Amino acid sequence: MSRAVLRTGMWLGFYAAILWAWWMMFSMSREMDLDWIGRPGPMGQAMAAMDPRMDMYMPMAEFGPLFWMWAIMMAAMMLPTLVPTLRSYDDLIHSANGTRAGWLGVLTGFGVVWVGFAALITGIQLVLLFGGVVDMLGIAKSGWVAGGLMIVVGAFQFSRVKEVCHGVCHAPMTYFLGHWKTGFTGGLRMGLGLGTFCVGCCWGFMVLGFVGGVMSLLWMGLATVFMVLEKLPQIGHRVTRPMGFLLIAGGVLLLAFPLSYGG
């Protein structure tokens, strides 16, 4: 198999994984009778109204099914943001001693970190669910909670942690040059590091799922587009703080009119 064919096949497989993850999220949304903003239709309203402590089988109140949902969601939302990073490594295959195995290692390491984050946020959602903070669909029950989350995530956009983590995500080539390791194992180690910085940069947009509903395809799409823009070298640094202002303003509005949130 020629190198060009191998490269093309790997990229096609990568994009196919993204399409599969989005299709799975769309299918789950339809099965749960949800609209594009994650609000329930007749069947979804019945599920959302159920008490999660009742003695019946409810997948969204169990760790396994909920973790599976979050893991697929991480793939749908975060794999597109990895394209600039994988392209940077692709360049090093030609100009340095990078390999296709190393490329797969970077992808694997990145995925491992985000799957770990999926497990963490699954636990958080279950705590919030059984604590009465969110409903069965992961939608905050109070405008105060939703507004507070938006303000916290918006303020984080101005923090030093955000600046450092975004700097790494925004310039993956610099990270590769400073942490270069060869082969699959080397790529895996670099992928784990890049994934950790990526979580540090983007965790807030995952938490915002509790504002719009974690099954909201609209929220997923908008968050994915913004996180991709943040990582583009031409405009990445220009969108971070404006988004912070928008989130804080939106949070203030929800705090000012809490009764209007969530219907």
Rank of each mutant, 00 (worst) to 15 (best):
L177P: 09
G41F: 05
H179D: 07
A96P: 04
M25I: 12
M47D: 11
I151M: 14
V207K: 02
I248F: 10
G98N: 11
L129K: 11
G116L: 11
D33Y: 04
L149M: 15
P233G: 07
V152D: 10
I248K: 12
L126R: 14
W22G: 02
G212D: 01
A71H: 06
I93A: 08
M10I: 14
I121K: 01
M10S: 04
V127L: 13
L222M: 15
M136L: 09
W180E: 09
V161Y: 09
S260D: 15
F205D: 01
P84S: 08
V214K: 01
P42K: 07
E62L: 10
L188W: 02
L246F: 13
A71G: 07
V83E: 10
M28L: 12
M43H: 08
I248G: 09
A76L: 13
A118E: 10
C198S: 10
M206H: 04
V164D: 02
G64Y: 03
G154I: 05
M220V: 10
R189K: 13
C169G: 12
V211C: 06
F130A: 08
D91I: 15
L19M: 11
M220R: 14
G213A: 06
G13M: 12
L218C: 08
G102H: 08
A249Y: 06
V207D: 03
V127N: 11
L222N: 07
L12A: 11
F226E: 07
D35V: 03
W203A: 03
F197A: 09
R160I: 07
